[in-house]
């Protein structure tokens, strides 16, 4: 994927993601403070706006850093800063790249997840966004092509999201609920899964558009 295509794909997928804002808000209200819907919708729109004005010759790493900066500043919160830090860490795996392949996406996501884990002192199974990120990274890194890799990443993330329902929250505000958090689906992990789904939906709409044209 060339930088211009990457830029367009991110924008299309984030426009899709905003449609999940209410679901994320409701999940977060049950488990946290309910601001995840706003963080995602304001953040997504801010990223779309900043990518629209980004120069065509921006590298993949520059595109990722632009996303990070816009997301962090849109609705300041711990989640926004964690995601921004993750994107920054991911962008470093793209240094020098002029095109992005499926395995590059996997490496990016892994580095982002590792940064989030390190900053938040979080491990897989703590019922956080990390639970969905790492299976997706695993799937993308070994995929033979983009379509099957994305499908496998979505399947892995979805499985992890469903599994978070049986887990007790160990990090962040949700951990204050202790055993009462069991039975509730983690909003952060859901957000990441929904983003992958948004990417697939946006790509398929774009592909249909190309067929018609």
């Amino acid at each position: 994927m060339r930088p211009v295509e990457l830029n367009e794909s991110i924008r299309r997928s984030l426009a899709e993601l905003v449609g999940y804002a209410d679901e994320l808000r409701d999940l977060d209200q049950a488990l946290g403070d309910g601001d995840l819907g706003v963080t995602i919708s304001l953040g997504a729109n801010a990223v779309i706006e900043s990518l629209t004005t980004l120069a065509d010759d921006a590298t993949p790493a520059e595109i990722a850093k632009t996303c990070a900066k816009a997301f962090a500043n849109a609705n300041p919160s711990t989640m926004a800063a964690l995601v921004a830090g993750g994107l920054l860490a991911g962008s470093k795996t793209w240094a020098g790249l002029t095109e992005i392949g499926t395995a590059d996406a996997g490496r990016f996501i892994r580095a982002a997840g590792e940064n989030i884990g390190q900053r938040g002192k979080t491990q897989i199974g703590d019922k956080t966004i990390l639970d969905a990120i790492m299976p997706a990274a695993d799937a993308l890194e070994v995929a033979s092509d983009g379509t099957s890799g994305l499908d496998a990443a979505i399947a892995g993330a979805e499985r992890a999201v469903v599994e978070t329902r049986d887990l007790q929250s160990r990090r962040g505000r949700a951990s204050w609920m202790q055993e009462r958090s069991i039975g509730l689906q983690d909003p952060g992990a859901t957000a990441f899964w929904r983003y992958l789904e948004s990417w697939r939906a946006a790509e398929s709409v774009a592909a249909k558009g190309k067929e018609l044209a």
């Binding site: 900066k69 800063a81 921004a84 830090g85 920054l88 940064n115 938040g120 002192k121």
Partner: peptide, 13 residues
Amino acid sequence: FNFDLAGDLAELE
């Protein structure tokens, strides 16, 4: 935790 996160944001700037 918060200073480390802020350091990431500063690096972006």
